[in-house]
């Protein structure tokens, strides 16, 4: 991959004594969509907050468009903010409650001193493009439906025409019939605006429908990263396989899934297990796994996996 838009190199993030992200590396090619999956406590949220420069990393580096973005300040930080936007998990909570939607959409322009008269027609186009009627402009966030609030959040993230869009659980809490709408919209916008996307979701189906590549996080570490077609169809890491088999899939006629559910729960990042952090829950764990932390290896199809006994041979 030449000249990625975002490259994250051995990024670690601690909250006090607790490591939330441990030496995560990945690169995001221009126009690509990377899905980040993992359970609560896997460090997904910390990772994207660090990637957007909202929390300073403890170690490692972040490069956006070739330039180091750790410790950016003032004008440079503002320029980066303009280029990297985010859709929040709880859309209604991410909209300032006392402002009208009109002001919420104008806010990004005001912050970046873009003349409103010039840019407003573009905002109205965007509003229609995300499927909102003009009537919402004079409403407050609590007066619109959850699906509409999400569309406002999407429009707001795109007002500044960013290059990188981070979507944090874009379909969480949505009904099935609306979930498809939002995924379709995001895919359409990604194409239309040539966006590079980082999509965080616990819903593997949503990631499958959107992502070119997938990164699987467990306890702040990358356990597997590779093309979505490979990782989500033939997982190489036992955790990825367990995650794919865990949630009951809609499969009329068929009863419970073949792979037994994973035992135990995600351990506390405060006291991570020795060796491979997944070994206490792994059905394939050997003595080696409890003693030695696996080194990431690259498989023939290009994916990277951190496992002593991957389900596929290198």
């Amino acid at each position: 991959m030449t000249d990625p838009l975002l490259s994250v190199d051995r990024l670690s993030l601690n909250f006090g004594p607790v490591p939330a992200v441990r030496s995560v590396s990945f690169a995001l090619a221009r126009g690509e969509t990377l899905g980040v999956v993992g359970e609560s406590g896997s460090g997904k949220t910390s990772l994207i907050r660090a990637a957007l420069g909202l929390v300073p990393p403890t170690a490692g580096s972040l490069r956006f468009d070739g330039a180091d973005i750790t410790g950016l300040r003032g004008r440079d930080l503002k320029a980066f903010r303009r280029a990297a936007q985010m859709i929040f998990q709880d859309p209604a909570a991410a909209l300032s409650p006392r402002m009208k939607i009109r002001d919420l959409l104008a806010e990004p322009l005001r912050i970046h001193d873009v003349p409103l008269a010039e840019a407003w027609p573009g905002v109205l186009d965007l509003l229609r493009r995300v499927g909102l009627p003009d009537g919402v402009l004079d409403k407050h966030p609590h007066q619109v439906s959850g699906g509409q609030a999400r569309r406002v959040g999407i429009a707001r993230a795109l007002v500044l025409r960013p290059r990188l869009l981070v979507a944090d659980e874009p379909t969480a809490g949505l009904d099935l019939s609306v979930q498809g709408d939002i995924v379709n919209l995001l895919v359409d916008l990604q194409r239309g605006f040539g966006l590079t996307c980082l999509v965080v979701s616990h819903n593997l189906d949503v990631v499958r429908a959107m992502a070119d590549r997938v990164l699987v996080l467990y306890l702040g570490r990358v356990v597997e990263i590779g093309a979505a077609d490979h990782v989500l169809r033939a997982p190489a890491h036992p955790y990825t396989r367990a995650l794919l088999a865990a949630a009951p899939r809609f499969d009329p006629g068929k009863r419970l899934s073949r792979v037994p559910p994973l035992n135990g729960e995600v351990p506390s990042p405060r006291t991570p297990p020795s060796g491979c952090v997944f070994h206490p829950r792994c059905p394939l764990a050997t003595n080696l796994c409890g003693a030695v932390e696996p080194v990431e290896q690259t498989l023939a199809d290009g994916r990277r996996v951190a496992c002593h006994t991957p389900l596929l041979t290198p």
């Binding site: 498809g180 499958r208 429908a209 809609f250």
Partner: peptide, 24 residues
């Protein structure tokens, strides 16, 4: 039928248009 069609299947094609139920 429409609701079941909204469920994203394991065989979904990336960036294909997903089924939805129009309207509210």
């Amino acid at each position: 039928r429409a609701l079941l069609a909204c469920e994203i299947g394991a065989d979904v094609v990336r960036r294909a248009t997903l089924a939805t139920i129009p309207g509210d």
